[in-house]
Amino acid sequence: MSAKIPLAQVPEGFFTERDPDDLDCVAQGGFCPSWILENFDRYVDPFFQHVYLTGVSLAIGFVIAFALGLLAHRKRWLTGPLTAVTSILFTIPSIALFLLLLPLTGRGNTTAIIALVAYTQLIIFRNVANGLRQVPSDIVDASEGMGLTPMQTLLRVEVPMALPEILAGLRIAASTTVGLATLAFFAGAGGLGAEIESQINFKSNVVVAGGLAVALAAALDLAVLGLQRALMPWRRAVAA
């Protein structure tokens, strides 16, 4: 070893043992475990961007839809129009909605979140309204008959009893939003979808980015399920 090469000039990976098959694998766009291990870092930021888009949209969407659900419970005639409007929003394909919003709100998180919030509305709104409507009238009657005010009846009796339905809506909304957020790159909001799209032929990339999205959906689903159990001890008691 006569000539000394400054370390800085050594190409990255020069000193690490490289499996020739592995290089081949990447070149062919295959499924390469070692590549995945080495490049996992690049998915961290998109993953958290995905979590951010999903979480913020669900939170805002839930607050709005819950409020609309309560409103429709009080003013029954609003149920029809609210269902119609949220249904139309729901039917517009997300790619189209992202693009249709671009001239109004520009590229970025705002547009993505507005669209994602729109998609949560029908699911959560309808489940809240249905859940409240299903509370047996004799229980509401007994509650008011004992002197709970209408607000107390709503918060202490009707909403807790509608929780299974409401949380079922939240579960559907959660996994739906994770899926739709993969298309948020059309609104310039990044996320795991942007990673999938950037190398759509590369198996390793598709598996990791797609897998993370599925895992996120599953994790959220379990989280809401856990919430459901924690909030509804009476359900478990019945099952026992």
Binding site: V178, G179, I196, V206, A213, A218
Partner: peptide
């Protein structure tokens, strides 16, 4: 429920790749 949890983009990408 399973169908809903798999993003369509991921599904299409998976097919394209595999």
């Amino acid at each position: 429920n399973v169908g809903r949890a798999v993003p369509v983009l991921a599904l299409i990408a998976f097919f394209i790749a595999f």
